[in-house]
C-alpha cells in the first residue's frame, strides 16, 4: 500500500487515475505499442471431430515452417527473417518479431496422430488434427 494524500490537490487528476485503473482490465491494448507477446500468437479451439490450432505467423515462407507431432506434443518452429535496415536509413519504430521461434502445444489424448493437416494462408498457419474414430460422437441405431 502506497501513501496517498487524503486531500488530493487535483481532484480531476485523481478521478482520471481512478477511471484508468478501472478501465485497464477491460482494455485489450493498455499501451500505445503493438502487441509483442509470444510469437507466433496461438488460438486453440476444437469441435467434436477435430482440434484446430491457429498460429499467427505473418511473412514466413511456409516451406521453412516446421510442424512436428511427437508423443501428443505439437511443435511449431521456424525462423522469421526481417529485411536488414539499409545504410543511411533510420529505424523509427521496431516492434515486429525477428529471429527463431518455437511454440509447443500439448494435445488431448483422443487425437489421431496420422490425421493431421496444416495450411498457411494470409500469414496464419492452421493445423487441424482429427480426433480418433472411436472418440467421435456416434449415433447408435436401434434395431
Amino acid at each position: 500500500m502506497y501513501y496517498r494524500s487524503l486531500f488530493p490537490r487535483d481532484l480531476f487528476a485523481e478521478l482520471d487515475r481512478l477511471q484508468r485503473g478501472m478501465q485497464q482490465p477491460f482494455d485489450p491494448n493498455p499501451n500505445i505499442r503493438g502487441l509483442t507477446r509470444g510469437f507466433p500468437a496461438l488460438n486453440v479451439g476444437g469441435t467434436s471431430q477435430a482440434v484446430d490450432i491457429y498460429a499467427f505467423a505473418p511473412g514466413i515462407d511456409p516451406a521453412t515452417l516446421e510442424v512436428h507431432l511427437v508423443k501428443g506434443m505439437l511443435t511449431i518452429a521456424g525462423e522469421r527473417k526481417v529485411d536488414p535496415v539499409p545504410d543511411k536509413a533510420t529505424l523509427h519504430i521496431d516492434e515486429r518479431f525477428a529471429g527463431r521461434f518455437r511454440r509447443v502445444v500439448s494435445l488431448p489424448d483422443d487425437v489421431d496422430p496420422n490425421a493431421i493437416e496444416a495450411k498457411y494462408r494470409d500469414g496464419v498457419l492452421h493445423v487441424r488434427i482429427l480426433r480418433k474414430e472411436e472418440a467421435q460422437p456416434r449415433r447408435i441405431t436401434i434395431q
Binding site: A41, L42, N43, G46, T47, Q49, A50, Y54, F56, V124
Partner: peptide
C-alpha cells in the same frame, strides 16, 4: 477472416 469450422469452441485465444 479465418476458416473456422462450424461449432468450434475456443479453448485458448491470444488473438482475442
Amino acid at each position: 477472416a479465418l476458416e473456422l469450422p462450424e461449432g468450434m469452441e475456443s479453448s485458448h485465444a491470444e488473438v482475442s
